[in-house]
Amino acid sequence: MNTTALKEWPLWEIFVRSKQGLEHKHCGSLHAADASQALHMARDVYTRRQEGVSIWVVPSAAITASNPDEKGEFFDPAADKIYRHPTFYEIPDEVGHM
């Protein structure tokens, strides 16, 4: 049994919406020959206990990710902007909740 990688079904990333009003959340991946098979398998694998009301399947190869080696520089612009947080501002106590 010496099957090459090309013989494998492609990989899909699975996103599940757990209930109406919530976002789809990444929950794992699986191999499937095509999108509709990926949907059926995702249903059987990730929603056996009614964990979802909607599923997205995305070919893993279609995802572009930021490079972890450049994490420092890539996210650096946000590092020194603490004025973007509400806690940066001092408001007198008598103002109450703001």
Partner: peptide, 10 residues
């Protein structure tokens, strides 16, 4: 790969 993993088992 999945095939390599299964090959290890089989």
């Amino acid at each position: 790969s999945r095939d390599q993993l299964l090959e290890g088992l089989h």
